[in-house]
Amino acid sequence: MNIFRLTGDLAHLLAIIILLLKIWKTRSCAGISGKSQILFAIVYTTRYLDLVTTYVSAYNTLMKIFFLGSSFATVYLIYVKFKATYDHNHDTFRIEFLILPAVILALLINHAFTPLEILWTFSIYLESVAILPQLFMVSKTGEAESITSHYLFALGSYRGLYILNWIYRYAMESHYDLIAIVAGIVQTVLYCDFFYLYITKVLKGKKLQLPA
């Protein structure tokens, strides 16, 4: 464990808590893409199956349980509890166009052709594009509530911090995992446009408004 990975995990934790609080406090999931949240639930389910087979550390186990629980809770809040506030019209990204390529790529490019490894690889590829429905929705609505943009900033930073973690681990432990690194870079690059808007607008107190 290193400071980059720890702050990355905490940024990830913060993002999930921000989202849950936003939906729970405002009793509304307006502006939130349910499809992205479904993808995240799939990502954590397929990645954390080793929860039942391998004990790494208390931290590792607790975080996996939290990510799994919170992702399903978020999907529940969006599609069941507050479904009246779910914005069907703007959450229209075809997630099958993200899931299928991730399945195919995981079958083609992986470290080992075993069920757990293929599922882990699939979850890594899917996570790199899981935010697209949310970014697509923000572009369609042309704006995002500031709380939603804080959520996106924390979520985007988490994998960006992981990239620093991978540089650190390569330099210090000469350990690296190309699949995770390439997917992590793609994932972080997808946020770049948003990061620019966040830093130039939201941090100046303005609303996140995309140029029409």
Binding site: S57, K64, D177
Partner: peptide
């Protein structure tokens, strides 16, 4: 671990 090193990451 089952996967070897590296999967200790979340």
């Amino acid at each position: 671990y089952i996967f070897g090193t590296g999967k200790d990451e979340l």
